[in-house]
Simulated scan of single mutants.
Amino acid sequence: MLFDIRTIVGGLLGIYGVILIIVGAVNHSAADLQRSGGWNTNLWSGIVMAVIAVGFLIWVRLRPTQVPRHTESSSPTE
């Protein structure tokens, strides 16, 4: 489960989402809001990324990767 691509993508999106949420909450100015049409784009994109990351991590927990078992149908004869 640790090396599943969904875990890696979810973790990276979560890290980037948290960083953008912090930047959007702490460092926004009136000039930034005017440039983006009144939207705090860092904050909103961080929230969306965090929600998608949670979705990926829930997906990993609900549908884990199934490793097929290799079974011999017949034993080799000598």
Rank of each mutant, 00 (worst) to 15 (best):
N27Y: 05
N27V: 11
H28R: 14
H28N: 15
S29A: 04
S29H: 03
A30T: 12
A30W: 15
A30L: 11
A30V: 11
A31L: 10
A31Q: 06
L33S: 02
L33W: 03
L33T: 06
Q34V: 11
Q34I: 13
Q34K: 13
Q34Y: 10
Q34F: 09
R35V: 09
R35H: 07
R35Y: 11
S36L: 09
S36A: 15
S36Q: 11
S36I: 08
G37Y: 14
G37T: 08
G38T: 12
W39C: 10
W39Q: 12
W39H: 13
N40I: 11
N40Q: 06
N40F: 02
N40W: 03
N40Y: 00
T41I: 13
T41Q: 12
N42A: 11
N42C: 10
L43K: 00
L43N: 01
L43Q: 06
W44F: 09
W44K: 08
W44P: 01
W44Y: 13
S45Y: 10
G46I: 04
G46K: 01
I47V: 05
V48E: 04
V48I: 12
M49F: 15
M49W: 08
V51I: 11
V51H: 02
I52A: 13
I52S: 04
A53R: 06
A53H: 01
A53G: 00
A53Y: 00
A53N: 10
V54W: 00
V54E: 00
V54H: 00
G55W: 00
G55R: 01
F56A: 02
F56G: 03
F56R: 03
L57D: 03
L57H: 06
L57V: 04
L57F: 07
L57T: 02
I58L: 10
I58F: 05
I58A: 08
I58Y: 03
I58H: 00
I58G: 01
W59Y: 07
W59D: 14
V60W: 03
V60S: 06
V60P: 01
R61A: 10
R61Q: 13
R61M: 07
R61N: 08
R61V: 02
R61T: 07
R61H: 05
L62K: 02
L62Y: 12
L62G: 03
R63G: 07
R63C: 07
P64D: 02
P64R: 01
P64G: 09
P64F: 02
P64M: 07
T65R: 14
Q66C: 01
Q66P: 02
Q66M: 05
V67P: 08
V67I: 08
V67N: 05
V67K: 03
V67F: 08
R69H: 06
R69E: 14
E72K: 07
S73P: 01
S73L: 03
S74A: 09
S74F: 13
S74K: 05
S74L: 05
S75W: 13
